[in-house]
């Protein structure tokens, strides 16, 4: 028996909007720790890891670890039917091939049940090693989204370079080149507006912009985003989900042969 009640149902709506274009089908894993997902895009270039900790749910019952295969497009369609202020409850019986989403309006005057078929998905969980990153950049998530969108109108790839001067995003395309430098800026009114650069070593890596633009669909989940970079390792683009967990996107770099 599984029963997860999330008072801030909009979080789950936003999570689905953030991942549904990157990943088609995925297993949601439910354990005492929380509700999680790990999945790669179809070309195995990017990986998404989601964790919503059990403590973040108003009610969290998961009698045994279960894995529920879902089509994320279909799940997003169902969650779109929940109001932004609705409380969302996920329910599944042991051995069942369906999951039920229950949406309750805040005043309890409207209650909806949506039942979705589960699917069998062969998923291989990857071990993500702990890594020491050469540089960690925290910046406003809206600023990062703006940079990715702007650069993708010029080129297909972005070179992210972190030096003591700041973090530089560069691209080139048929019509020309673009460089955007963000310097550390901690003298702002609100901490979430700061750009903070922790650098152990300078690092420069090349990535496909279209994946970054997909990751920025998670922008509504968090005011800030953290980029963790190390030479010849996938970048980690992390959006913290307040009081609940995180959504992390890993993107493999482009490397010269």
């Amino acid at each position: 028996m599984l029963e997860l009640r999330l008072v801030q149902g909009s979080l789950l709506k936003k999570v689905l909007e953030a991942v549904k274009d990157l990943v088609n089908d995925a297993n949601f894993d439910c354990s005492a720790t929380g509700f999680s997902l790990q999945a790669m895009d179809s070309s195995h270039v990017a990986l998404v890891a989601l964790l919503l900790r059990s403590e973040g749910f108003e009610h969290y019952r998961c009698d045994r670890n279960i894995s529920m295969g879902m089509n994320l497009g279909n799940m997003a369609k169902m969650l779109k039917c929940a109001g932004n202020d609705d409380i969302i409850t996920l329910k599944a019986d042991d051995g069942s091939d369906v999951v039920t989403f229950m949406f309750e309006s805040p005043t309890q005057d409207k209650i909806a049940d949506f039942e979705m078929k589960l699917m069998d998905i062969d998923s291989e969980h990857l071990g993500i090693p702990e890594a020491e990153y050469h540089a960690i950049v925290r910046m406003p998530s809206s600023e990062f989204a703006r940079i990715c969108k702007d650069l993708s109108s010029i080129g297909d790839t972005v070179v992210i370079s972190v030096t003591k001067e700041g973090v530089k995003f560069s691209t080139r395309g048929d019509i020309g080149t673009a460089n955007i430098v963000c310097r550390q800026n901690t003298t702002v009114d609100k901490p979430e507006e700061a750009t903070v650069i922790e650098m152990n070593e300078p690092v420069s890596l090349t990535f496909a912009l279209r994946y970054f633009n997909s990751f920025t669909k998670a922008t509504p989940l968090s005011n800030t985003v953290t980029l963790s970079l190390s030479s010849e390792l996938p970048v980690v683009v992390e959006y913290k989900i307040a009081e609940m967990g995180y959504i992390r996107f890993y993107l493999a770099p482009k490397i010269e042969d």
Partner: peptide, 14 residues
């Protein structure tokens, strides 16, 4: 020319 790597080149199966 930079070649796109796959995630599986960095992270092994559990």
């Amino acid at each position: 020319v930079n070649q796109q790597r796959q995630i599986t080149a960095f992270f092994g199966k559990k």
